[in-house]
Simulated assay, not measured.
Amino acid sequence: MIEYESLILFAIPWIVYRTIVFAFKKPFSIKTEFIKALFYFSIIFIYCLTIFPFPFYVYPYEKGNAFQLMNLIPFASIYGSLTHFYYMVPLRNIGGNILLFMPLGFAIPLRYKVNKLWKVMLIGLFISFTVEVVQLFISIRSFDVDDLILNTLGTIMGLIVYRLFILVTKSAKQKETIDLMSKT
């Protein structure tokens, strides 16, 4: 589970930084600040959940060299999760990896005006790959190619949610404009 103290440790520098920026840059936009914070905290959320080990029990056969534990076979751990006897394993592994990167897929086009699928997908893949490489050096974590697949899928799904959000807000604005024009 996420340690709330670690989130607070990342929130305080963000608040101090944005306060200093605001002091020197007078125009203040809540929308802009929200977009920047969404991107920043989606990265911090990913970092907190993937780099800091979960307090789950580590089975003795899972301890060892991270290079021995790595999975380079696509869909191997996904298949293992789906065939596991306990329903929470696929939910936590597959669903968790996808949900973890969805906020990032939503935040990238908001923050950087990047709306092309392949660009957002590459950014999500790069961030996921970076996390997986860092996990090689953490004793109870390991590199898993399936995490790359699921995290990238989560980034794509976040982009899809973003595009749906834009469609809904545009159609609501158009409907409001049409309603206003018909009343006059």
Rank of each mutant, 00 (worst) to 15 (best):
5 E>I: 14
5 E>R: 13
5 E>Y: 11
6 S>V: 10
6 S>C: 05
8 I>C: 03
12 I>H: 03
14 W>D: 01
14 W>V: 02
15 I>M: 07
16 V>F: 02
19 T>S: 11
20 I>H: 06
21 V>P: 01
21 V>I: 12
22 F>R: 10
23 A>W: 05
24 F>W: 06
24 F>A: 03
28 F>P: 01
29 S>N: 06
30 I>W: 06
33 E>D: 13
38 L>M: 13
40 Y>K: 12
40 Y>D: 14
40 Y>V: 11
42 S>E: 07
43 I>M: 08
43 I>L: 07
43 I>Q: 05
44 I>M: 03
49 L>M: 03
50 T>M: 06
50 T>F: 00
50 T>G: 01
51 I>A: 01
53 P>N: 05
54 F>K: 12
59 Y>C: 02
59 Y>P: 02
60 P>N: 12
62 E>S: 07
63 K>A: 13
64 G>D: 04
68 Q>H: 12
69 L>A: 06
70 M>P: 04
70 M>N: 02
75 F>H: 04
80 G>D: 12
90 P>M: 10
90 P>D: 13
94 I>W: 11
97 N>M: 11
98 I>L: 04
99 L>M: 12
101 F>A: 01
102 M>K: 08
102 M>L: 10
106 F>M: 10
106 F>R: 09
111 R>W: 03
115 N>G: 11
115 N>R: 13
116 K>Y: 12
117 L>K: 14
120 V>Q: 08
122 L>M: 00
123 I>W: 00
123 I>K: 00
123 I>A: 00
125 L>Y: 10
126 F>N: 14
130 T>F: 05
131 V>I: 09
133 V>N: 01
138 I>L: 04
138 I>C: 02
140 I>Q: 09
141 R>C: 09
141 R>E: 07
141 R>M: 08
145 V>D: 13
147 D>G: 11
147 D>I: 14
148 L>M: 15
152 T>D: 00
153 L>I: 07
154 G>P: 00
157 M>L: 15
164 L>F: 06
166 I>A: 08
171 S>D: 15
171 S>R: 15
174 Q>A: 05
175 K>C: 05
178 I>N: 15
